[in-house]
Computed example of a mutant assay.
Amino acid sequence: MTIKKRSRVTSLAAGRPPTARKPKSISRKATKALINAHHVLEKKKAQAIAKGDRAAEAAIESEIDALGGIEKYQLASLQGQRLDRGGDSSRVLMEWINPMDPTALYSKETRLKMLEVGALSTKNACSASGVFDVERIDLNSQSDGIIQQDFMKRPLPNDDSERFDIISLSLVLNFVPDALGRGAMLLRTLDFLKQPSMQYSSGLRNFFPSLFMVLPAPCVTNSRYMNESHLESIMNALGYMKVQSKITQRLVYYLWVRESGVQLPLKTFRKTELRSGRSRNNFTVVLPGSSG
C-alpha cells in the first residue's frame, strides 16, 4: 500500500508582514554590502529625479527591486540590531538617561513623548523602558505599531501638545540621498521638538528637549566633507548642544539638546573638503543659510 505524502501545512505567519516572521540570518558582510548598495542606488535615483531623467530613474528602481526593495533593506537593518551585531541603538540612549532622577524620569504626570523616525521595531529599549510614550513612523511600515509616513511630509504640529520631548534619528540621516536633504531634515526636527524652557524639572532640563542621532561611524570619521567639529558647528547653528556622544568602530551616537532657537541669520554650510584621500566617502550635510 502506498502511503501518500502529507501536504505541507502553511502557517499563519506566512501571511504576515516580514518582521512578524523569524528573520532569515544574513551574514555581517552581506548585511553591510546590501545596505551600502541601497544607499548608493537611492543617491543615484535622487540625482536622476533631480535631472528629470525618467529612463535612468526607472532603471535604478529596477536595480533596487532586484536587491529586494526596501523590505530587504529593512531586513538587513533589523539583522544589524541583533545583540551579536551591536544590538538595538536605543540602548545607548537609555544608558545615558537612566542615571537621571528616577522621580522625574518615570513621572506619570510628566510623561515624556518620543518621535522615532525610521522605526523598525516596537520592542526596542526605549519602548520597553516605561520612560517614553513613543510614536513610531517609517517610510515602509513593517508593524502595526509603526505608522507609514514620510517625516518630511508629516503635518506640522499645531501646538505643544503635538510636539515631542525627544526625536530619534537612528540610521536615518545617512539614508537621505543628498546633502541638502539632510540639512532640511535637521532643520525640520526643530518644528517637532518642544521649545527649550523652564517647564522641565531640574532633573530633566539637561537632557530635554533633544535629538538622538545615530550614524555609521565612517560618515564622521572617514568622510571627505564631514568631521566631528564640522557636525557640531552645524548642530550649534541650529540651536543644539552636544551633551553625550559615543564612537564605536561601526557607529557614532549623539544626544543633542535643544538649548536655543536657530542662530539668525542662519550660517551657510557648504560641501567643503575637510580631508583628502581616495578612500574617503562623500557624506556631508548642507545648510543653505539665510539672509536674516
Rank of each mutant, 00 (worst) to 15 (best):
I146V: 10
E61I: 00
A125V: 04
P196D: 03
R188T: 14
L180H: 08
T19Q: 13
T284K: 01
K153D: 11
A50T: 06
T110D: 14
K113C: 04
K108D: 12
S141C: 00
M100K: 15
P18L: 06
L255P: 05
I49L: 10
E63G: 08
N98A: 13
L187F: 00
F175K: 14
V92I: 15
L41G: 10
A55D: 13
S276C: 05
I234N: 02
G118E: 03
V172I: 15
D65S: 14
A125R: 13
A55P: 01
T110F: 05
V172A: 01
V262E: 10
L93R: 12
G69M: 06
T103E: 14
S170C: 02
G277R: 08
A237W: 06
S229Y: 00
M1K: 15
R258W: 04
G80C: 00
G145Q: 08
Y225M: 00
E232G: 07
G239L: 05
G15F: 10
G183K: 02
N236M: 13
R270K: 15
L78N: 09
V117M: 09
E232L: 12
N282E: 12
I247W: 09
S27G: 07
I64Q: 09
V92N: 03
S279C: 12
L139H: 12
N158T: 11
E61C: 06
S129I: 11
A66D: 07
S210D: 09
Q142G: 03
G52W: 08
L266D: 01
V172R: 03
N282V: 03
K45M: 12
E162Y: 06
Y73F: 10
L173M: 05
V131Y: 04
A30D: 11
K242G: 09
